[in-house]
Simulated assay, not measured.
Amino acid sequence: MADITLKGNAINTIGNLPKIGSKASNFSLKTVDLSEKTLEDFKGKKVVLNIFPSIDTGTCATSVREFNKKASELENTVVLCISKDLPFAQARFCGAEGIDNVVMLSDFANGSFGKDYELDIANGPLANLHSRAVVILDEESKVIYTEQVSEIADEPNYEAALKAI
C-alpha cells in the first residue's frame, strides 16, 4: 500500500504500482464513444498511462493539457489519460479544451484497471477513485517508469516521465 496525501491529510492506495521491468497487465477501458480499448490495441508503441482521480479537478485537467501538448512531439508513443470519470465528462472536457493528442479512457464500468494496477485510493474522501500516477510502458508493454504522486493535489513530474521515453 502506498502512503499518499490529499491536501496534507494521510491516505493510502490499495497497493503499489507495477514494478519496473514487469509486464503490464492488460486492461479493457471505455473510450469517449463508449467503445472499448485494451492494452493490446497499443502494442508496438510506447504507452504513457496518465492516471488521475477526476477530469473535473484543476490538477487533473492540467495533467491532461500538459500531456496533450507533449504527446504530439513523441515518436511512436501514445498517451492514455485514465480515470473513473464517465466517458461523457471526458468527451465534454476534450471538446471544450481542444484536446486531441491523447486518448481518454474510463474505468467506470468495473474498476478493474485501478485494482489490477493497485492504484485505487483505499480511504478518505476520494476512496475508490484512482490516485494520481504515471506508468510508462515500452513497445512490448514492459513497465519502464512509474510515479505514484505523493500529494494528490500536485502534478506529476512531466520531465522525468518524458525522459524515460
Score class of each variant (00 low, 15 high):
134 V>G: 00
44 G>W: 08
131 S>H: 06
80 L>T: 09
30 K>L: 15
95 G>C: 13
83 S>P: 01
130 H>L: 12
139 E>W: 11
27 F>H: 00
113 F>N: 06
49 L>F: 05
61 A>W: 09
64 V>A: 02
93 F>C: 01
58 G>V: 09
52 F>S: 02
104 M>N: 10
46 K>L: 08
80 L>C: 01
122 A>K: 09
7 K>L: 06
49 L>W: 03
101 N>Q: 13
132 R>L: 01
1 M>A: 12
95 G>H: 14
118 E>M: 13
160 A>I: 14
100 D>S: 15
108 F>L: 05
114 G>Q: 02
122 A>I: 03
93 F>S: 01
65 R>W: 07
34 L>V: 15
100 D>K: 14
156 P>E: 06
103 V>P: 02
165 I>P: 03
94 C>Y: 15
160 A>G: 06
78 V>K: 06
64 V>N: 03
84 K>Y: 15
113 F>A: 03
103 V>M: 05
158 Y>S: 00
94 C>D: 10
162 L>S: 03
21 G>F: 07
11 I>M: 04
158 Y>T: 05
53 P>Y: 08
86 L>C: 14
24 A>S: 01
89 A>G: 13
112 S>N: 12
150 S>H: 06
162 L>Y: 13
148 Q>A: 08
151 E>P: 04
110 N>C: 13
13 T>A: 05
22 S>H: 02
149 V>L: 03
25 S>Q: 10
73 E>V: 11
137 L>P: 02
60 C>P: 14
63 S>T: 15
79 V>Q: 00
75 E>K: 14
67 F>C: 04
114 G>S: 08
4 I>T: 05
70 K>Y: 08
67 F>L: 04
64 V>L: 09
150 S>Y: 04
70 K>Q: 14
119 L>C: 11
156 P>F: 04
18 P>K: 01
92 R>G: 07
97 E>M: 04
95 G>E: 12
80 L>Y: 01
123 N>S: 10
33 D>S: 12
91 A>N: 15
51 I>M: 02
70 K>F: 11
160 A>S: 10
141 S>T: 07
62 T>P: 06
66 E>S: 11
47 V>H: 03
63 S>M: 13
133 A>Q: 05
134 V>C: 09
71 A>K: 00
39 L>Y: 03
88 F>T: 12
141 S>Q: 12
45 K>I: 13
51 I>H: 03
34 L>M: 11
129 L>I: 08
70 K>R: 14
35 S>Q: 08
97 E>G: 07
155 E>S: 15
16 N>K: 10
29 L>A: 02
80 L>E: 00
44 G>A: 12
154 D>G: 08
30 K>D: 11
2 A>F: 05
66 E>A: 03
152 I>G: 01
165 I>N: 01
48 V>Q: 00
